[in-house]
Each structure stands twice: as structure tokens, then as C-alpha cells.
Design a binder for these strands. Structure first.
Lengths: 202, 202
DNA sequence: ATGTGATTTGACCAAACGGTCAAACTCACG
DNA sequence: CGTGAGTTTGACCGTTTGGTCAAATCACAT
């Protein structure tokens, strides 16, 4: 087992390679669908070598989810109470859509986990996510009370942002089956712009 | 193996029980995450007995997906070109949301399949779905050209309906983590009503 | 009741799985 | 170069998995 000391050059390289491979395999097959052999082969390492860096399959999965949770909530965290309300929300939507474009595997990792009941991240949902969401919905409600944006159910407003943006990553196969060669994001960007402008302009 | 003749009373009962159990297990764990033993135990039958009715795990999964594909596309099929455009679309959204409420397991079965690249229903997406969608988007474009509804990208309009409605079934755990005791659909219904009214009113 | 086909099951199998371990190899550093 | 820690692996283990099979039981038409 690698020591707790500062990681060696080799440790850094291999840990990164393993997490990269694990992300590919977990996001494409779900936790139970992924096999350690598959991750090992994708990382270019032997199976025992993998388990030398991560004691078990669950550990790899946890490492990915933990590392990801923060990144995933960042776009919402950045919504600024001092900014122009409508512009802040539109920017949030744009950041979320950008994450679906740039990190589709991460999005599918979450989707897999949540569709199957989130057995491994239930706590994070009820604490980290719930806390942040409650803070930001208060902000949204203030903006609505001030007449800066139209009145809608703030929780469902957030749900709509999540579902509309993550759809392009999670249901990519379906989207491409319909669109053919057309780049999904070329159309998604102006569509969401229009949608939220019409929905939220007071 | 049961004969091809007209199914006996016992065959009907057991096939139904198996599909019901399989739907529970597949939708909660994905294809690879589900085990035949689990389905058998949930159906109250022995494993060999299960495989007497369905020759393999894949066959159970296929039976579910095939049986489901039609049901799933029905709400869109019912969108009537002779109806009032805006009302037709709003009714479609309501039907889709109702399906998320009434058939969350079916929704998650699809979600699991598509998030993981739809390996088993690629063809159905490219034929059945694509054909129906192309037919209905032509209708939407006609309505837009006639000024009956606002101009938006028709494909992305359909994506938005799918993602916004199915979100309540597929991401149920997350939605409930945020909403607490509040019934998700109580808020979803008026929210989507408002959203599509504002988006599509010309 | 009896015979025939439909139904059910305990015992079993080979492959795939997550994980272990001792032995071998490599690297960095004095 | 030598040495000790860090790294790698082939062989192996127990369990789980999808699936098989022969034998036993059941349902029902005659």
C-alpha cells in the first residue's frame, strides 16, 4: 500500500490514470456493470496493481464521487446575489450547459447513481446539495419579491435547469439519434436562452 | 419450454408476475446490476422456473423494453394536427408528466438503458422514435409558420418536454431530497404549465 | 383413474467476479 | 554500487452469476 507521505511521481501518474479509466468505465456501465478488470485494462495496469492504489472497487467509485460533488455544485454556488438577477440566472444556465458539454462522463456518473436511488450519495444530497439549494432559493425568492424576475416555484426552477442541461449529456445517444449530424449544443444554447428569458422576464 | 399455443392460465399469471418483478429489479439496478435470482425471489418463483418462461435474462429485458416502447411514445402520437396548437402541446406535456407519475419504474428502465448508451435499443431509437419525431416536428414547424405558436427549435422543444417531465421519475431521489414532504407533482404541474405557456405563446 | 403434456425444482456447472499474497522487480538516493 | 522502500504481477481463492438438466410433481381431458 502506498504510504500517506507526499505522493511520488509514479503514484501521481497512476492514480490519475486509474481515476480517468474508472470514470470511463463507471459512467458507461454503472457501478455494478463496471468490472475491476475492465478498469485495469483501460488504465493499462494489472488488476492487483490497481488494487495497490485503491483498496477496492468501492474506493475508486467513492474517490470519483467525492472529487466530483464540489465541481458539480460550483455553477450554482457562483450565482451572485449582488449581480443583475436575470443575468445571473441566465449565466447559471449557461455554465450548467457548458458542464454537460465539457464533462458528459461526470454527468452520466451522477445520473447512473441517482437513477438507481443514489445508494452511495444519499448523505451528500441531503446535506451539501440541500443546504446550497435552500440558500439559493431564498435568493431567488427575494428577487421574485422585488419584481426582478417572474414568480415561479423556485425549487422547480432549479429542477428545470438541471434536467434541461444534463439531458444533453445523460441522454446523448437519444439526442444524437434525433439530431443526426447537427451539434446538440448549437441548438441547445439559443433554445435555453429563449426559454429562460420568456419564463423569467417579469 | 412453454409451447407457442395459446397461453394457459398458469402461463399468463407467471409471465405477468415475472415481468412485474423484472421491471422492479431492472429499473432499480440496471441490466447488469439485476440478478436472475433477485427477480425470481421477487416473483415468488424458483430460478429454473423463471428460465422456463424466459430462456434468458436478456429475453426478460427485451420483453420489457419492447412492450414499453409503444406505451412510451403514445403521448406524442396522440398530439393531434387538427387540434388547437398550443392546447395540443400543453396536453402533451401533461400526458408526459402523468406518465412520470404513474410509471416511474418504466421511466427509470429507459433512463438506465439510455444513459449507458442504449446498447439494446439503438435500433428502436433510430427507427421508431426518429420517424415519429420527424413527423411531429413537421407539424410543429407548420404551427410555427402559421404563427400559432412561437418559433423555437422543434427538436429541442421535444427534448425539453422529455427532460422536464422524466426528471421527476428518473431523479426522484434527488427531487425528494430537496422538496422534503411536498409532493413533487403538485409543484411540477403548474410550473410546466407556466413554462410552456410563456415559451410558446406567440 | 389414468395418461400425457405442462410445470416445478434441487443439484449442478463453467465463467466471471472482487480481492489476496508472496515473490519479483524497479527506483531513488547515499 | 548497494540497499531499502516503493511498485508490479502471476497464481490463486471464495463467491456470485447466468444457465442447464434430469427427475419429480401437477393439471386436466378422456
Amino acid at each position: 500500500m502506498p504510504k500517506d507521505r507526499s505522493p511520488t511521481r509514479i503514484q501521481k501518474k497512476n492514480r490519475a490514470a486509474i481515476l480517468e479509466a474508472a470514470l470511463n468505465v463507471f459512467s458507461a456501465n454503472g457501478f455494478r456493470g463496471a468490472t475491476v478488470d475492465q478498469i485495469a485494462s483501460e488504465a493499462g495496469l494489472s488488476k492487483p496493481n490497481l488494487l495497490y492504489y485503491f483498496p477496492s472497487k468501492v474506493d475508486m467509485h467513492n474517490a470519483l464521487l467525492a472529487q466530483l460533488m464540489d465541481t458539480w455544485l460550483d455553477p450554482l454556488r457562483e450565482m451572485d446575489e449582488d449581480g443583475e438577477p436575470l443575468a445571473e440566472i441566465m449565466a447559471y444556465v449557461r455554465r450548467k450547459l457548458q458542464m454537460s458539454r465539457d464533462f458528459p462522463r461526470e454527468s452520466r456518473l451522477f445520473a447512473n447513481e441517482i437513477v438507481q436511488g443514489a445508494p452511495r450519495i444519499h448523505d451528500a444530497l441531503n446535506h451539501d446539495l440541500k443546504t446550497l439549494v435552500d440558500e439559493k432559493t431564498k435568493l431567488l425568492e427575494r428577487w421574485m419579491a422585488d419584481g426582478k424576475i417572474a414568480r415561479v416555484h423556485p425549487y422547480h426552477l432549479l429542477f428545470s435547469v438541471w434536467s434541461l442541461t444534463q439531458h444533453y449529456a445523460d441522454f446523448d445517444v437519444q439526442v444524437r439519434a434525433i439530431l443526426g449530424d447537427e451539434d446538440p449544443f448549437d441548438g441547445a444554447d439559443p433554445f435555453l436562452e429563449t426559454l429562460y428569458l420568456r419564463l423569467l422576464t417579469p
